[in-house]
Design a protein around this nucleic acid. Structure first.
Length: 417
RNA sequence: GAGCUCGUAGCUCAGUCGGUUAGAGCGCCAGGUUGUGGCCCUGGAGGCCGUGGGUUCAAUUCCCAUCGGGCUCCCCA
């Protein structure tokens, strides 16, 4: 097929009406369930200052170093948001949300942008929902965040997921661990993959994430961070595990789970699905106790997660889960002739006033074509109006599904709803 | 940044060992039913066979390049 003159950018897709219904279903579900947890929605701009993202996520992260869409205009630097934790924290600080008292429980839904090579479960514009709890260092917050995340998937019927859990401790613990890890790898430095060699100095923790065959033997018997946690961190981590167990939320400890952003501290987690293929992370998150301060606010502990909506839909497809319902319309007015069209046009508002969805033919087509259209639109009822009906004031009211019709005045038809 | 793979109608896909007007199913439009949809029957519209170049008497078919899609590595949602 010939390529159209104008297309979306790679990795950016149109969401067409048939698909939008499932998006709306998911969005409604998220909002409804978030309200049950007493989370409040926050909406921030699509673009942020580049510096916020660079400082917030970390200069050396993959996202910042190669995946951000950034441009400048005059003096200002703009970046399309690649995630929402840093922007939400920015909004928290900028708008003094701490002054509302207590911990802030926020949720969001919206598009994110990363300049990656598109593939299954990975787009350049994609959508996330997530929550951020700011102001609490208590493990209760970690666990509520995780519980909400799992809750959404369970509501939808995606149950075959694995919650991976780890603690990467506070900076002090992590420094100690980094040194131990480097000491462990040093004798075999030359045997490491090229990527891992690069990470060795900059961010040795990421070597643990490596999928290169040659790295595996050294990763397998590497020291684990949980052995280097200080007392504070150990205490927090065990509380998280204790509460998860209380809630009967199963988890799998993965001492090598390292998340992509620099801002994480303590708890780190990912929700993995076997239905996704290469990109198997449905959602991920953790604690980020230093980010608020890093961005210029008062020291404020926080925890949150982000979930990929497209990936959720992929999992649904694999599992045969249908989200949202068929498109329908209550009434289709079939008109014959100009007078009937004029009449139909003026009755539509009366139906809609009653909360009845209603439409009519816009193309001046034959009755047969209009009936066909009504069928295609899944109209529950057709009101058929021609010259006879207009003079008598009685209209043919047809139940499309039952194929039954009666002759009624328009007032009588309105009574039916 | 690298690798693999695929580009024929709106969609899913046949086909041409190089040779007159390129096919099917679904969808769309119309007729059969001059005021009744879904089922059925009939007909119609809709393709520079992704684009450019090469080889050839002749290319949608073979070769090269390019563009686009999909998948994969890295990493993440």
């Amino acid at each position: 097929m010939a390529q159209p003159k104008y297309t979306t950018h790679p990795g950016m897709v149109d969401i067409l009406p048939d698909d939008v219904r499932k998006w709306q279903y998911l969005e409604n579900l998220i909002r409804t369930e978030a309200e049950k947890f007493n989370f409040e929605e926050i909406r921030t701009p699509i673009m942020e200052q580049t510096e916020l993202i660079v400082r917030g996520l970390g200069q050396l992260t993959d996202i910042v170093s190669k995946e951000i869409f950034a441009f400048s205009r005059g003096e200002d630097n703009y970046v399309l948001r690649p995630e929402l934790t840093a922007p939400v924290v920015r909004a928290y600080v900028e708008n003094h949300l701490d002054q509302r008292g207590g911990s802030q429980k926020l949720y969001y839904i919206g598009p994110m942008f990363r300049a990656e090579r598109p593939q299954k479960g990975r787009q350049r514009q994609f959508h996330q929902f997530g929550v951020e709890v700011l102001g609490s260092s208590d493990a209760v917050a970690d666990v509520e965040v995780i519980a909400f995340m799992i809750h959404i998937y369970n509501k939808i019927g995606i149950n075959n997921t694995t919650l991976k859990l780890n603690s990467i401790g506070d900076p002090e613990s992590r420094e100690k661990y980094k040194e131990a890890l480097k000491a462990h790898l040093k004798p075999n430095y030359e045997k490491l993959s090229e990527i891992s060699k690069k990470r060795y100095e900059k961010n040795p923790l990421r070597i643990l994430d490596s999928k290169e065959e040659e790295d595996k033997p050294f990763i397998e018997n590497a020291p684990v961070i949980t052995d280097y946690l200080n007392e504070e961190s150990i205490k927090h981590y065990s509380k998280v595990k204790e509460y998860l167990t209380d809630l009967e939320i199963p988890f799998e400890e993965d001492p090598y789970l390292v998340r992509g952003m620099d801002y994480y501290t303590q708890t780190a987690f990912e929700l993995i699905s076997p239905d996704l293929g290469a990109q198997d992370a449905l959602a991920g998150g953790g604690r980020y106790d230093l980010l608020v301060q890093e961005i210029g606010g008062q020291p404020t502990p926080a925890v949150g997660f982000a979930a990929g909506m497209e990936r959720l839909f992929i999992a649904c497809e694999e599992l045969g889960i249908q989200l949202g319902s068929e498109k329908v319309v209550d009434v289709y007015i079939v008109t014959l002739g100009d007078a009937a069209r004029k009449w139909g046009l003026s009755q539509l508002p009366k139906l809609r006033e009653k909360g009845v969805s209603a439409t009519m033919d816009y193309m001046g087509r034959s009755m047969k074509a209009q009936m066909k259209d009504a069928n295609r639109e899944n109209a529950h009822y057709a009101i058929i109006v021609g010259e006879n009906e207009l003079t008598e004031g009685k209209f043919t009211f047809r139940n499309m599904k039952e194929s039954e019709e009666s002759s009624l005045s328009f007032e009588e038809i309105l009574e039916k709803f």
